[in-house]
Computed example of a mutant assay.
Amino acid sequence: MRRKKKVMVCVTQQKSCERLIDYGASLISSEHDELHVVHVVKENWKFFGQLKEEDALEYLFDVSKNHHASLSVIKAKDIEKTLSEYAEKHKINSIIMGESFEKDEQQNMISRLQEKTKVKVNFQIVPVDFDDEKNVISLE
């Protein structure tokens, strides 16, 4: 029996995250696979403070819906811990993230999330100039 794919796409409220969702959706090959789009915002940040943010959230919802993905928006004190716990709870086996331009490991969200993730998961990093699946970096 084929292992069920459970893909988690980590997004911000930026509309440019559609490329990440598109890539995550390309990994889904069966109606039994799951696509989770997850955005975690710091507890003390205003998420709906500006109309632009509300529009971006609506846009993410529409893109997720078009790909038959669930969209979770979570407020938390610790973003990486929350993403890690989400991955563990939902038995995620692939995490999709956008490329980070932070060179310092402490500032790099990808490195911090890898450190906090307790379950075995395949990290796939989609570059900003993503135009082909060969550009995606796989970190195991």
Rank of each mutant, 00 (worst) to 15 (best):
M1G: 09
M1V: 09
R2Q: 15
R2A: 13
K4G: 05
K4F: 09
K6R: 12
K6H: 11
M8Q: 04
C10I: 02
T12I: 02
T12S: 10
Q14D: 14
E18T: 04
E18R: 09
D22P: 03
Y23W: 13
G24V: 00
G24I: 02
A25Q: 01
A25V: 01
I28D: 11
S29Q: 12
E31S: 13
E34A: 02
V38D: 05
H39R: 07
H39K: 02
V40S: 05
V40L: 00
V41C: 10
K42W: 04
W45G: 08
W45Q: 14
F47T: 08
F47G: 12
F48D: 11
F48P: 07
Q50L: 13
K52M: 10
E53N: 14
E53W: 08
E54I: 14
D55M: 12
D55C: 10
L57N: 14
L57E: 15
E58K: 09
Y59F: 11
L60F: 04
F61W: 13
K65Q: 09
K65T: 05
K65M: 06
N66D: 08
N66V: 06
H67K: 07
L71W: 00
L71M: 02
S72R: 03
V73Y: 06
V73N: 00
I74P: 03
A76T: 03
A76Y: 00
T82Q: 05
E85Q: 15
K89S: 08
H90M: 09
K91T: 08
S94V: 13
G98E: 02
E99Y: 07
S100W: 04
E102T: 15
D104W: 11
E105C: 13
Q106K: 15
N108K: 07
N108Q: 08
N108T: 12
R112N: 06
K116F: 11
V119G: 04
K120G: 14
V121D: 01
F123S: 04
Q124C: 07
I125C: 08
V126Q: 01
P127Q: 15
P127R: 09
P127H: 10
F130Y: 13
F130K: 05
F130T: 03
F130P: 04
D131N: 15
D132K: 15
K134F: 11
N135S: 12
N135Q: 14
N135R: 12
I137P: 02
I137N: 07
I137H: 08
E140M: 13
E140I: 14
